[in-house]
């Protein structure tokens, strides 16, 4: 499905979604509270069929966080990027680990690195950081090494 068709179909599903086509793939901006329903539709709609979540990450823009989901369809070979802006102080978004299994580990990583709280995640605990890690999330821009910080 080409971008224009995708846009039409997605606008039907969610009229409040906005688009950005400046990049390689179609970017869709959505509100965090719409994400769970939206993701379910993306996965199950017969003519969208985004069965592959190939990247899940987060960006710290200092003023806010932005969740980024890269979706692909192995059947139709079309890709989209879903972005959702989160609050800086208390970021939270619904988990999609029951829709795409791969999100389980990716969300755990984003949880420990950025401090995003994934609601209803089955196993939200540290993935890479050592057990008992305390302090800030390392990938946040305001992170400072608590042990051996060298200021430049």
């Amino acid at each position: 499905m080409q971008n224009e068709e995708l846009k039409t179909r997605i606008t039907e599903l969610l009229p409040t979604a906005t688009f950005d086509e400046s990049g390689e793939w179609l970017n869709i901006m959505i509100a965090p509270q719409d994400w769970l329903l939206f993701a379910t539709n993306f996965r199950n709609e017969t003519n969208l069929f985004f069965d592959h979540l190939f990247c899940l990450t987060c960006i710290d823009w200092k003023t806010h966080l932005c969740m980024v989901y890269h979706l692909s369809s192995t059947k139709f070979r079309h890709n989209i990027v879903v972005k959702s802006i989160l609050d800086n102080t208390n970021p939270a978004i619904e988990t999609v680990s029951h829709i795409w299994q791969t999100a389980n580990f990716h969300e755990r990583e984003v949880y420990e690195m950025f401090g995003v709280n994934f609601l209803n995640h089955p196993d939200l605990r540290l993935l890479i950081l050592p057990d008992g890690w305390e302090g800030k999330n390392p990938m946040r821009k305001d992170f400072e090494d608590p042990i051996n910080m060298i200021r430049l």
Binding site: L129, P138, F143, E144, D145, M149, I150, L152
Partner: peptide, 8 residues
């Protein structure tokens, strides 16, 4: 290159 502000 990782001496500055790293957690790991």
């Amino acid at each position: 290159p990782f001496f500055y502000n790293t957690y790991s």
